[in-house]
Write a protein that binds this DNA or RNA. Structure first.
Lengths: 395, 395
DNA sequence: TTGTACGCGTTATCAC
DNA sequence: GTGATAACGCGTACAA
């Protein structure tokens, strides 16, 4: 608190720590020699202008690299600005320019392991343009969603990314009316009116089913996700289509409803294992549910993959842990965030009337240790020196 | 795109989607009857004032519930505001009031499973006051950190939370000079000048060691975290103290350096198992490293907890998965975020000269399946019907 | 209740 | 070509 800034304690003792408090008069009245700002209050463009002996307009132009300012003057302004630590107030320039250099990122639940990776991708791109990210966690509640959108619009955000959700019609309309570019991720706007980034759920699910079929599975269960998030229906539809295409067992009791949580995967697996005729494989609409299923099967003493194969979707970070070692469909998460941010920035910079674009990323199959031919002699779920573990892992 | 807003396509066709573009003249010139804003441009306080037949000052007062406005007028203003969808521009009121109703949240890596839970706690509290969260992901890079702080200050944020990092002296000073309240989480400011939320690492580590000792372990290894994040040194110091107190084997080769990543836990375990005299238990400074160790031990064919016990720290969500089932020290993550946000909001609202406060949360021991007496007949890592899994899990 | 100064940059217009 | 002047963006707070 008392590094090389003089009279710190005194200033604080007078309540000068509070911004915009009383120091105004001192500052605006440029005192003889230097016109340096009164300590504690942040310098304004007027301070800097006075200090450089030019007009505020010139300062603005100089800092913005406008052509109508002599190189000499520009450098002077630059130097002095650095000296006194001048930075333009975002509020002021935001008010004037109608922008805020920040973009709104609306997510359902940041604590879902899928989300932070996407956020990371977004942040990375946005950061390059020195824009800020306003994180809005909606908990999938309609009112919270609406309130956040309101707030973002009031802040004049430059753009908005909505992850695994849809805005209701009213919110959508407000965003459009404000002319704010919007990119939706994982769920398309009902009217296809916005830029979109997603994954080819169809082929992802298809890859999983094809793989299971190639192993010899004919009776494959599916754990559905919740409609509200991501493209749960896409994935289920793709599953049904794949079942059709392969002429697999279409028993409707093999499709159970989950909600993308680990718990729901747990109970889904339990109910599937309670069926008189069990499936030989379980495909879950996301990794969390697949992991939940894995846990339930473990508790039930059912061997994976010897007795039942399990496949997830998303490839979250921990799926590759040797003890989980989940076969899954990779969802390029960071690339998703990256693509969304790119689309958004392009839209912000460019022509906003061009028709909406889509980026559909390719999923890929990650074969790990939770899949094997049905009823087969179980093989070890991972390379390892012999003689260690028992049959539990399928040895 | 074409719900009940008339002439949408035409408006867009004329490039009217771009904010603050040309519509100004139309709007400010209040036309006879209603003075409703030109479609497309957002209404200002002047529009609303004209519409209500009062001054903008009265509108402002009415919406702010100031006492100096007749109830009748207030209701009229409120109603009309809702009708035309008036919301004050944050930039304008921010400029005037020197605030932004947003708080900066500086994290090292949002993709670290520890972080989103804390963020969730912060968001929850901040949301109640309808403030926004600006997420700054620094990747632990000094320049990025500094640039973000700069940007946050330019935005006149109301307050700032820094998670598991320290700002360098210059940044610290800037924040202090701007009078922006700051709460540090998991790492104290070197000069103890800010509000702080953390966990009692001392007693957390102590609980873990005590527990291992109570099981009969005498040779306990420790996987250190990286200095840059969290209180790695606290935890290591606590470990050393506990080793002393219990008179355990103080062999320095039992302390290996990690970096909080799963990979580092993996290699730490491998190097520990390569020792001529192996430890009987491994305590890691966070769960990720503990899980890495678990994976390595699995690959090496070393049984957990039969041959080696493993304890983590943090209790991340997936630690309780039945297949991981990690014994660990719980770090109340959401409560941490909650407490940090509360401290911050109090500081924002209240007296900023009061001395800094600290909140130190209590860790707790979560006994799961990765711990057992050394060399003991292994017990199952979790309840389950008999006869299922082999000895792998320690049956 | 209202008029108006103010917060702080940016940009269009104008002068040299 | 350089640079100054002034209007402007939009609320808020204080004096009237």
């Amino acid at each position: 608190m008392s590094r090389n800034r003089p009279r710190e304690e005194q200033a604080n003792g007078q309540g000068d720590g509070v911004p915009g408090n009383g120091a105004t008069a001192v500052r605006t009245a440029a005192n003889g020699t230097a016109a340096a700002p009164a300590s504690g209050a942040r310098p304004t463009i007027l301070d800097l202008a006075a200090l450089c002996g030019v007009s505020p307009a010139t300062v603005s132009n100089a800092l913005a690299d406008k052509p109508n300012v002599k190189a000499e003057t520009r450098d002077l302004v630059r130097r002095k600005a650095r000296e006194i630590g001048y930075h333009a107030s975002s509020a002021a320039r935001g008010l004037r320019m109608g922008r805020s250099w920040s973009i709104g990122l609306v997510v359902g639940d940041i604590a879902n392991p899928f989300v932070p990776d996407v956020v990371r991708g977004v942040e990375d791109v946005v950061w390059r343009e020195r824009k800020n990210l306003i994180l809005c966690n909606t908990d999938f509640q309609a009112e919270k969603k609406t309130a956040y959108v309101r707030s973002l619009l009031d802040k004049q955000i430059d753009g908005m990314i909505v992850l695994s959700q849809i805005l209701d019609a009213h919110d959508m309309e407000r965003v459009a009316a404000a002319g704010i570019p919007l990119v939706t991720v994982n769920r398309r706007a009902p009217d296809f009116s916005t830029d979109y980034v997603g994954i080819d759920n169809q082929s992802g699910v298809r890859m999983a089913v094809d793989y299971l079929v190639s192993l010899g599975h004919r009776r494959i269960a599916f754990v559905k996700g919740l409609f509200r998030s991501s493209s749960a229906d896409d994935r289920f539809a793709a599953f049904q289509a794949a079942v059709q295409a392969h002429g697999l067992d279409g028993d409707p009791s093999l499709a159970v409803q989950g909600d993308y949580s680990m718990e729901s995967g747990d109970s889904a697996a339990r109910s599937l294992m309670a069926l008189s005729q069990r499936p030989t494989a379980i495909l879950a609409a996301n990794d969390l549910m697949a992991l939940g299923a894995l846990g339930a099967l473990h508790d039930l003493g059912i061997r994976v993959p010897a007795d039942v194969s399990v496949v997830g979707f998303d490839n979250i970070q921990l799926a590759e842990h040797p003890l989980l070692n989940l076969t899954t469909i990779n969802h390029p998460k960071r690339e998703t965030g990256d693509a969304a941010a790119r689309l958004l920035l392009q839209r912000i910079a460019g022509d906003r009337t061009e028709p909406p674009r889509s980026v559909v990323l390719k999923p890929s199959l990650i074969v790990r240790g939770t899949t094997a031919p049905p009823q087969a002699v179980p093989k070890p779920r991972r390379r390892r020196p012999a003689a260690a573990r028992g049959t539990a892992e399928g040895g």
